[in-house]
């Protein structure tokens, strides 16, 4: 099966408020798909509808071929879920929480205990296995929630803001776990509003005001706003703009300490940069340095939101 998640025309209305607006989305088997967007963009609502926790107003959802909400019981068997808010029992210990959920999946006896031991080791929770969940630190709670989501070896992992409110080093460590699971073949759908985390995803969907405003690999999205990769080339001496503007898409040209700093947009920097350098060299220009500019997804997001909102306004008038 090619797609783990296929959503089309998904809409959710709360009265007059449209929380999710005609959303189309496809997530391939085996990828980490990041769902990005500010709070209130409709990510959690989308996820809840996908899991059959909430009924859609319109649209179809297929998870590994199962149609939701009709075949929800099949979805549950193959899906691990981590809610936005810590939603395990604070008055049960780490072990008791895992045991309880394991039993709900029909695991029992030695099989269950082996699986719990495995997860405790993987998530580094062995030392706190008898501690009440309510007494765990934020990072531990997050790992326990992941452990519970993994208890039945799901094919699909759905994580709603798993790293919200957790310190950056712990967030990074958490992503290590996710990458490890993904390598073993787990498809992961994760929402976040931390743009830096999204760099870890194979593909991302940007959501704003209930709409998916862009979708693609992090690289593709970055290219999309500027029409390609952004590269900074520093040349010796003050070069007149018209010398190079004829064949180059120059975004910005500055002089600094007897050097010329160019910002160029290339369709694909990795392919075009070597030939460009050769050409500049053949023109007798001395290239001091040439490197791609790292655009953060945050900048991409702001750019895209502004554009999409301008478009919406344009439609309205």
């Amino acid at each position: 099966m090619e797609y783990a998640i296929e959503i089309s025309g998904l809409t959710k209305k709360f009265g007059d408020f449209v929380a999710v607006d005609n959303l189309d989305l496809r997530v391939r088997v085996g990828e980490i798909f990041g769902f990005l967007g500010p709070n209130g963009a409709g990510k959690t609502t989308t996820i809840r509808m996908m899991c059959g926790l909430m009924r859609q107003s319109k649209g179809t959802i297929r998870i590994y071929g199962y149609s939701i909400p009709e075949e929800r019981s099949e979805l549950i068997k193959i899906t691990g879920y981590m809610a936005q808010r810590f939603s395990l029992y604070e008055d049960l210990s780490v072990y008791e929480n895992m045991e309880f959920f394991g039993k709900l999946y029909g695991l029992n006896g030695e099989g269950l205990h082996k699986r719990i031991r495995e997860l405790l080791e993987f998530l580094d929770l062995e030392d706190v296995k008898d501690r009440l969940a309510g007494r765990l630190s934020g990072g531990m709670k997050q790992r326990l929630a992941l452990g519970v989501a993994l208890i039945h070896r799901p094919k699909l992992l759905v994580l709603d803001e798993p790293t919200a409110g957790v310190d950056p080093p712990i967030r990074r460590a958490f992503w290590e776990y996710l990458r490890g699971l993904n390598k073993e073949g787990t498809t992961i759908l994760v929402t976040t509003h931390y743009m830096d985390e999204a760099e870890n995803c194979d593909r991302i969907g940007l959501m704003n005001k209930g709409r998916l405003i862009a979708e693609g690999t992090p690289k593709e999205l970055k290219r999309r706003i500027f029409g390609g990769d952004l590269v900074e080339v520093v040349l010796q001496g003050r070069i007149q703009g018209d010398v190079i503007k004829g064949f180059l898409n120059v975004g910005d040209l500055k002089y600094k300490d007897g050097e010329t700093v160019l910002r160029l947009v290339l369709k694909d920097a990795s392919k075009e940069l070597p030939s460009l350098l050769k050409r500049l060299d053949s023109m007798g220009l001395k290239v001091q340095s040439a490197e791609p500019i790292n655009v953060t997804l945050e900048e991409v997001f702001i750019e895209l939101v502004t554009k999409s909102e301008a478009r919406v306004r344009g439609e309205a008038y």
Binding site: I76, A83, F101, L104, V148
Partner: peptide, 13 residues
Amino acid sequence: ERGTFEQLIMSPI
């Protein structure tokens, strides 16, 4: 109220 219901019903219960 505590949100545990959401996790509970994501299991085959």
